[in-house]
Each structure stands twice: as C-alpha cells, then as structure tokens.
Amino acid sequence: MNFSLYKQMMKVNIKGMFNYAIGAAFYMILMVWVYPSIAKTAKPLNDMLKVMPAGMTRAFNMQSGFGSFETYISGEFYGLLFTLIVSIFCVMIPIQLIAKLVDQGSMAYLLTTPTTRGKVAFTQASVFLSGLILISAITTVCGIIGVHIFIDDSSSFHVNRFIQLNVAAFALFFALGGISFLISSLSNDEKKALGISGGIIFGFYSLDIIGKISEKVDWIKHFTIFTLYSPSEIVVGKADLTNDCAILFFIGIVAFVVSILAFRKRDLPL
C-alpha cells in the first residue's frame, strides 16, 4: 500500500464515487417515500403479481410481493436499480484505476518512483474498495433513516434483514469489481477492457434474467454469479446467505490477488 498514491487516487475519483453514492441514496429515499402509498394498494398489486407469469416476477425479483417494506425494497431497488447502478460502477472504476493509466501512459510516472507494481496494484484495488464501501454505507444509512422518517409504523421494519440485504449486495459487487479489476490489470487498451468487462458483467446479469424467466433454461443459472445474490429470498429469510456471500467474497479475493500478481509480471507498453 502506497499512501501518497491512495490519497491522490481518492482525490481524482472521489467525485465520481459520490455521484454513484448520491444517485443510489437519492433513489433509495424516493422509493421509501412512495412506499406508504404503495402499501395501501398492496393487495391489488399482489393479486396482479399472481396473475403475471411466474418467470417474469422471478426475473425482476418481485416474487415476494409488496407485503412488507423489505420485500418491496428488495424487489424494486436491490433487485433492479441498485444492482444496475453499482454494476456500472464495478465496470468503470477498476478499468479507470489500471487499464486507463496504462493506456494513457501516466502509469509510467507511478512506476518511475521507488514503489513496486505490486504496491501500485494493491493501492488501486483499495481505492476501488473504498468507493464500494462508501456507496454501500451511504445507501444503507439513507435507507434506515428514510424508513424512520417516512414510514409511520417503523416497528415492522426488520433492520437485520435490511442489513443482510446490503451485505449480500456488497459481496456481489466485490466479486464483480474483482473480475473487472482482473481484466483491467491485464489490458493495454482502456476501451477494449471496458468492452470485455462490461460484456462479462452484463452478460452474467442477462443470463440470470433468462434463467429466471424460463424454467426450461433453468440450468443457465449455474453460469452466472448473480445466482448467488437473491434479494427477494434474503428478505424472507429463505436464502443461504452465509454460503452465497462466502463464495462471492472468495471469487472477489481470488480475482484481486490474481490481478496483482499478473500486473507484477506483465510487460507494460509505457
């Protein structure tokens, strides 16, 4: 870890990170704010969900219905929008932290100083992780505060389940970010890296949706890590949270370690 580099990189990226964090938090608060009016119509909405094809509701993580705040927020926010916003973050930032600097050539300056490539890569990974923690923390805190402000009967709110939901999301993004970081540290071309990383991550996402829509291609879910993240099951306590998160964290750690090792041994076109 190189602290000067960490400081500098945070300075360069903090604005972008806050944009994601504020975007996610703002949307979260909006969702909480409209919940009371949705809750009133929960029954007709649930009835509507029942007549919709089961694959459809599963694909968008809405099978738990609108019965409680957690099921509502897991489907509407954690199952769709939050996943998309932070997945974009997980594609973009790791690419900017390594591949972009290599492509532009400014990596040369970092490696001109008495630091090692291993340290540079580790520091850049820490910058990404700091951003992810920032986004997760702000979203979680805003969610909890929002519930207490906008929902009259906040006693029915399960803080534990809500935090589990956020931990599971964090584990997923940690793994996705690791994959993107690995591609970033192997690439000389920023655009190409962005394409590959985006392709893989949104490919995973699409496979997840396809697998859920049709039971016939159910087997597809074994090929995407999004299967390990099931917000609608977490909120009703049906998910194997420890196991899923452990696998996701494991994938992430392996990806980051391999990235750092690969970056140390690689020829750089600087």
């Binding site: 360069v12 400014s106 490696l111 008495p114």
Partner: peptide, 21 residues
C-alpha cells in the same frame, strides 16, 4: 528490483502523460 532501483533513476518519457485533473 523494480522498486529499489528507482531511487537512483530520473526518467523523462518520450510521450508524457500525466494523471488527469
């Protein structure tokens, strides 16, 4: 000895690229 040896080196790249901003 990538890290250690850099203590003794000053380098001007042929195509200079700085960190943005």
């Amino acid at each position: 000895k990538q890290g250690e040896v850099k203590k003794y080196i000053g380098y001007l790249p042929g195509e200079i690229a700085f960190i943005e901003g």
